[in-house]
């Protein structure tokens, strides 16, 4: 019961913080769709080419989600450490997993509007060009894989910031790396084999983006995914990243308690 109360309180608090920071949300709702259109224009050498709109849309949605989720999670956590509020959340009978889970869910929910704004923009432009955005319920599986894998990454980054200062640069760099080699804008199939392999192995959104394209653009089923390493890896990779993130966070949390870095200016 206590776990549930703590979890729901954390989700509620996270969403209240999103409402409190509505200006930032509004800016993101505008800038990310604009960024998507600029990317497609860049890739199409100044034209919104129909064959680029949908693949880029799927990649950009995933990129927007990981950017929003990880950044909200990370910066919120860092802010709580620096302001000392995080220590107060440890003065409760709750395991920290309840709170971190609540933070993850709130961050994921908060990331959705911006990702949906990108989707809506893409849908309007594609529709204006006479096309349509396909939908297949099976796409929920790669979407879930993206969410779970992203949560694992956020756990690693939050754990690191409990112990080490100036992790901000790693957070920014990691999201930038995913934009470049995560298969979001350029499919992994078009990259060198080694880069594609590392990306499928370690980038939380890479298998999900590949599977989304296979299902929605290629019309394939989940058991017949031609790109990447198949359904098995699509399911296992995010779980592995989440497990690694949970272990890393737990270890780093213990280290933070030994070093006294749970709260610091």
């Amino acid at each position: 019961m206590t776990f549930t109360r703590g979890f729901t309180a954390e989700v509620r608090k996270g969403l209240l913080n999103v409402v409190a920071g509505w200006r930032e949300v509004l800016v993101n709702l505008i800038t990310f769709p604009v960024f998507y259109l600029l990317i497609v224009l860049f890739m199409g050498r100044g034209q919104l080419r129909a064959e680029l709109l949908l693949p880029a849309l799927l990649g950009m949605m995933a990129l927007t989600f990981i950017h929003e989720q990880v950044n909200r999670m990370f910066w919120g956590y860092l802010g709580d450490i620096q302001s000392g509020v995080l220590e107060q959340t440890y003065l409760t009978p709750l395991p920290s997993s309840a709170l971190i889970l609540g933070r993850q869910v709130a961050a994921a929910i908060a990331a959705l509007p911006t990702a949906l704004a990108v989707l809506a923009t893409g849908a309007v432009v594609i529709h204006a060009q006479g096309g349509r955005v396909p939908f297949d319920a099976r796409v929920i599986v790669p979407l879930a894989a993206i969410v779970v894998g992203t949560c694992g990454l956020a756990l690693v980054l939050c754990g690191l910031t409990l112990v080490f200062k100036r992790i901000e640069i790693i957070t920014q760099l990691s999201v930038a790396v995913y934009a470049i080699v995560g298969g979001t804008l350029v499919p992994l199939a078009a990259m060198p084999d080694a880069v594609a392999a590392v990306s499928r192995l370690a980038v939380p959104i890479a298998p999900g983006v590949e599977a989304m394209r296979d299902i929605l653009i290629g019309g394939h089923t989940l058991t017949d995914l031609p790109s990447g390493w198949g359904l098995g890896w699509l399911l296992i990779q995010p779980l592995l990243i989440l497990t690694a993130g949970s272990i890393a966070f737990n270890r780093l949390e213990h280290l933070a308690k030994r070093r006294g870095t749970l709260g610091r200016p």
Binding site: L16, N17, S83, V85, Q88
Partner: peptide, 9 residues
């Protein structure tokens, strides 16, 4: 030396 509570709430 810490806020102890959320200033945004």
């Amino acid at each position: 030396g810490s806020r102890n509570v959320y200033w945004s709430l």
